[in-house]
Design a protein around this nucleic acid. Structure first.
Lengths: 213, 213
DNA sequence: CCAAGAAGTGAATCAGCATTCACAAAGAAA
DNA sequence: TTTCTTTGTGAATGCTGATTCACTTCTTGG
């Protein structure tokens, strides 16, 4: 045996891998999954098509990883907000706001990650992602009910509904070539909906009052 | 000129067209869009692959029509409930219940129509369908606010959120090879969520009281 | 029954891409 | 430097399934 990967080599490989992922993410961000053929990804990463397969077993696997790591990142952000201090209501608001704002920031990417048709495997990853988002909200709901901020309710269903609600409300403005206006109002509308839905009795704003109007 | 379509012929053609649509719908219902290749549809409709193209310009067009007509049907049902008599709250409940129950009845079909990846065009039709569903709920919301049953709110956003909420809550139980239990509880949970979300003050059941618990 | 046009057939074609593969270039040990 | 191994190349391959098309069969009006 006359070959062992040197440290430098090791690093360069890892770097390539990252570059592939990044290129894929970028391509999706600018034109959806269609834009992101293996050839395009390879070109944009400065490699040949064949090389991609030294790093990922298949196109699907590559995009599953792209999607999953984006979701991981998103979850981490939400988690940080959800585990923070203060009213549960406040934190719920924070989560929804934060997600919505980021989605509106990078609409193509968000659209692709939330709704664009893609291969089976990617879709499954997406479903899993939604479940994970749901779990963040679920624990928030549990906490809120325990703290007496929200009335008793089916937290599993409620969590799924919340995810669905803001997702859907976001999709239309996010979808390719949709007009994008009233971002503030949109986000606030979504938040208000969610807060009413969980039965929050305060608005969760900086120093808020009632939410019912 | 020695040929004009006779009445009988005309009918047979229309009948073929219907049979194609029906076959397509059935195939989707039993195995999602993958199952429904042109060849399969043709076979199941008792025609050859080529013949399909006498009736539809492309596969996408065929499935757009399948989807659209399913949505039309669904909308008609919801419309009937929404335009019926009684509390707005009651009717809103009725719409959500009805949709959810039908979706749980034919999970494959519902999954395909709501979420399964498919070609661009089909996806666009799906988006349009969601918008149309949204409109039904929007008018319900407007009516409810005017009647004083619901507090003032952004009805556009609210409508989208409602559609998203029940859709999402349905997806997991509907998705291929998911366990399906607690249907009643699921539907009731979704309804409760939606009613709280719009700020309904009664449960909308047969002769209901408060919804808050 | 015949001719003209329409509908139906299904094998061949085509297109779009992912995936492979024979080969080349580079890296590691000796 | 030699040799072995890994990594990179990119054209060729292969697959999948929609779409086409030359041809057959049917319908209609005369």
């Amino acid at each position: 045996m006359s070959y062992r990967r040197s440290f430098l080599m090791e690093e360069r490989l890892a770097d390539n891998r990252q570059r592939i992922l990044k290129a894929a993410r970028a391509l999706v961000a600018e034109g959806g999954f269609n834009h992101a053929s293996i050839a395009a990804v390879a070109a944009s990463a400065g490699l040949s098509a064949g090389a991609i397969y030294r790093y990922f077993p298949s196109k699907a696997a590559l995009f599953v990883e792209v999607l999953t790591s984006a979701i991981d990142h998103e979850i981490a952000i939400l988690q940080a907000i959800a585990k923070g201090a203060g009213d549960v209501t406040c934190r719920l608001r924070g989560c929804v706001e934060s997600f919505a704002n980021r989605a509106l920031e990078g609409p193509y990417l968000a659209y692709a990650f939330i709704a664009e048709p893609a291969e089976q495997e990617v879709d499954e990853a997406r479903l899993l992602g939604r479940k994970r988002f749901g779990e963040v909200f679920k624990s928030l709901l549990i906490e809120g009910v325990e703290a007496g901020e929200f009335p008793a309710q089916s937290v599993d269903i409620g969590a799924a509904c919340i995810v669905g609600a803001f997702t859907e409300a976001l999709i239309r403005p996010i979808a390719p070539r949709a007009k994008r206006e009233g971002r503030k109002e949109l986000v606030e509308g979504i938040v208000a909906f969610c807060l009413r839905a969980v039965g929050a009795t305060i608005s969760g704003r900086k120093a808020g009052r009632g939410v019912r109007a």
